[in-house]
């Protein structure tokens, strides 16, 4: 087989990847940079499932979600305290005001218009008839911040 020279023009397009660099102080989030990068986004970083937690959502101009990428290890309200000796217990302490920085890689398709940082609740269980499989609805999401896409595609 011969490899495609320009996958962007294909019937099965592969959107460009952009690294978003955020800083945060409590729930105040700032988008510091949007940098196109030659990288891949594995499936574990673009889950199709309705998972709870903090995510960066890529949205179109109408606010419809196009993709979601989990934010790992940010907004933690506790910090782990490791023992000095093997076998001793790990403990945690509260962090009154979480702060720091995080980066995510997101796919930015031509439809992408905004990035949203959200804190999503688990899917809600819906009533279903006896014997039928459990039904769900998307969990409620708290929007921490939204930013316009400003990257050359």
């Amino acid at each position: 087989m011969s490899q495609a020279m320009n996958p962007q023009s294909s019937t099965t397009p592969s959107p460009p990847v952009v690294r978003l660099f955020f800083t945060y102080d409590g729930t105040t989030v700032r988008l510091e940079s949007q940098q196109p990068v030659d990288a891949v986004i594995p499936g574990a970083d673009t889950p199709r499932e309705e998972l709870p937690g903090h995510f960066v959502e890529v949205r179109d101009a109408r606010g419809q979600r196009l993709a979601q990428v989990p934010i790992r290890d940010a907004f933690r309200t506790t910090v782990e305290v490791f023992p000095e000796r093997k076998g001793d217990l790990i403990t945690v302490v509260n962090v009154p005001q979480p702060g720091g920085a995080f980066t995510v890689l997101v796919p930015v398709s031509p439809d992408a218009a905004q990035f949203a940082v959200v804190d999503r609740q688990p899917p809600r269980s819906l009533p279903s008839r006896p014997g039928a499989p459990e039904a769900f609805a998307r969990g409620q999401a708290t929007e921490l911040a939204t930013f316009a896409v400003a990257v050359t595609r």
Binding site: T12, I41, P42, G43, R48, L66
Partner: peptide, 14 residues
């Protein structure tokens, strides 16, 4: 399993 989404592209084999 690998999957493709128009907004994401191919997600890789798992």
């Amino acid at each position: 399993h690998d999957w493709w989404d128009r907004q994401i592209g191919w997600s890789g084999w798992m």
